[in-house]
Design a protein around this nucleic acid. Sequence first.
DNA 1: CACGCGCCCTAACCTAAGTTAGCTTCGGAC
DNA 2: GTCCGAAGCTAACTTAGGTTAGGGCGCGTG
Lengths: 237, 237
Amino acid sequence: MDNPFIAKLTRGVPLDARDKARLLQVMSRHREASPGVDLISEGDRPENVHLILKGWAFRYKMLADGRRQIMSILLPGDFCDLHVAILKRMDHSIGVLSKVTVVEIPRVTIEELTSGHPGIARALWWATLVEEGIMREWLVNMGQRQADRAMCHLFCELAARLRVVGLVQGSSYEFPLTQEDLGDLLGLSSIHVNRTLQELRGSDLISLQGGVLTINDEAKLAKMSGFKPDYLHLDAD
Amino acid sequence: MDNPFIAKLTRGVPLDARDKARLLQVMSRHREASPGVDLISEGDRPENVHLILKGWAFRYKMLADGRRQIMSILLPGDFCDLHVAILKRMDHSIGVLSKVTVVEIPRVTIEELTSGHPGIARALWWATLVEEGIMREWLVNMGQRQADRAMCHLFCELAARLRVVGLVQGSSYEFPLTQEDLGDLLGLSSIHVNRTLQELRGSDLISLQGGVLTINDEAKLAKMSGFKPDYLHLDAD
DNA sequence: CACGCGCCCTAACCTAAGTTAGCTTCGGAC
DNA sequence: GTCCGAAGCTAACTTAGGTTAGGGCGCGTG
């Protein structure tokens, strides 16, 4: 798995050698970050667009009363803020979940890519549409599924997305979220997240220890949570 | 308010006379639909992209157990399914809330527009990014706000979006959702929606009767629900 | 090596919201 | 003009999940 971004894009849209080369070239400037600091903050007008190469990050908003909602999990190959190429101002923040390596791409480069390379423009377009599809499914998750189902659905989704970039070993993957993070993602209290995890462990569906999540029976997990991967658009259809 | 789509786009991106003319030209083929039938269904591969000119529609998914989650409210000027230009297959359905007039635009036309008219391409891009911003805020709404706050937040958002297309008279607008629709949107039971509405009426914040919603004190409503319109990106920033 | 802190875990209690079961009102169809 | 169905409304009861208040453990740092 050389480059997670290209691995991801080519699941959805064809990219010719020239486009791939151009993309790789654009991804030369790296930066590292660790949990605790934000990659980008609400209100910022970043000059660069950020893309995750390694590690996990997340999109979130804080409310006036201190509550936090996590709105996306950003995995290797995901853009953090492609939208600032057009919207300019961030309406939310990007936090870091594990040691990450990000690529910084100047906004003008994005504009050059999208106007001069129709294949790349299409690929970026595709990536944001898939992200939208994921958010729609998260709305379903929070609105209609009980805590245990919602959590299992999330675990299935992450497995599917991580598999694309080669980050699933067997039926396990690194899982850097704390229980509080999980709560802020699913709209639950961390106490209830803990209860639910105990329950899932008890019925032998998953195990989660030392930052590694193992799914014991993925088909069963998908069934009980209603996970159907079509919204990830992983097969060129 | 001649064309809601152009009214909306020009809030975010500049459009020259040539782009406007081309867009108007593309919006010639109309179609009508009424509540009860779906405009597009999950799994479809529509040949046309749909844009609302008049009336309300909504994006939704059904679960196996019959539950429904509404994921977007589509108002005049909103695209129903711009994504099928790239993703091809619908991963959700579009339902109708009131008598609607929709424009049908062939997929090839969209491709022609985005490749040949950089101004229009940018405008469409902008529109989908704003839609994404709205979905992020809905996640916050469902995950972190109690029923009454969430509902008021929705009423504020709709007021702001409808104002852009000239559909707010004074402090009232047409509101075609049933209490059950509202429940499926906010992740609540219709009984609880009713309770909450009674409570809001009782404290004189809103009135809702005969399909018309009136906001008595918009500033107060915005404050109690934490509504800040920045995520709608209504001022070119 | 001990101190602190972040994270995990647990129990007891509470409440916002769900469920079940029904009544009412209104408008359209026959 | 009465029948029917959709939508609104209400009460009584239940429950999923929140809150408060802790305890324990592992590990990074002085």
